[in-house]
């Protein structure tokens, strides 16, 4: 199909057996402003790291909310914490805190070998 200009998209159903909501709940509790994200993608559009490499902060938000946290650690490492996303966010979400909590949480889970 790819040869004909179509893209094969993997099924995007959420497997609740694989759903890992611990990190999401922890972040939502510590940074409540994250609850009101409307996934507009403004953060991704302005992202500094995004100009240098394929990095999509909005997609990370979606993955986190879908409980798919494997692979997040490698992705979030691309962020440079410059803060542009936070300034353009129409909902005033403290995105830098979300990222720091995410980084910290992921290391904790890795250390616990889960």
């Amino acid at each position: 199909m790819n040869a004909f200009g179509f893209k094969l998209i993997e099924p995007r159903s959420i497997d609740f057996d694989q759903f890992d909501g611990r990190l999401l709940n922890e972040i939502l509790e510590k940074e409540p402003s994250f609850k009101i994200c409307l996934s507009c993608g403004g953060c991704t559009a302005t992202c500094n790291a995004g100009t240098l490499i394929d990095f999509n902060i909005r997609k990370m938000n979606l993955l986190l909310r879908r409980g798919e946290i494997t692979g997040l650690a490698r992705e979030i490492d691309k962020c440079m914490l410059c803060g542009k996303c936070m300034l353009v966010c129409p909902r005033g979400i403290n995105i830098r805190n979300v990222i720091m909590l995410l980084k910290k949480g992921l290391v904790q889970y890795r250390n616990e070998n889960i």
Partner: peptide, 12 residues
């Protein structure tokens, strides 16, 4: 395009 200066990272 260029990387950030690094100061926000140091502050964090």
């Amino acid at each position: 395009k260029a990387p950030c200066c690094g100061r926000p990272l140091i502050q964090a």
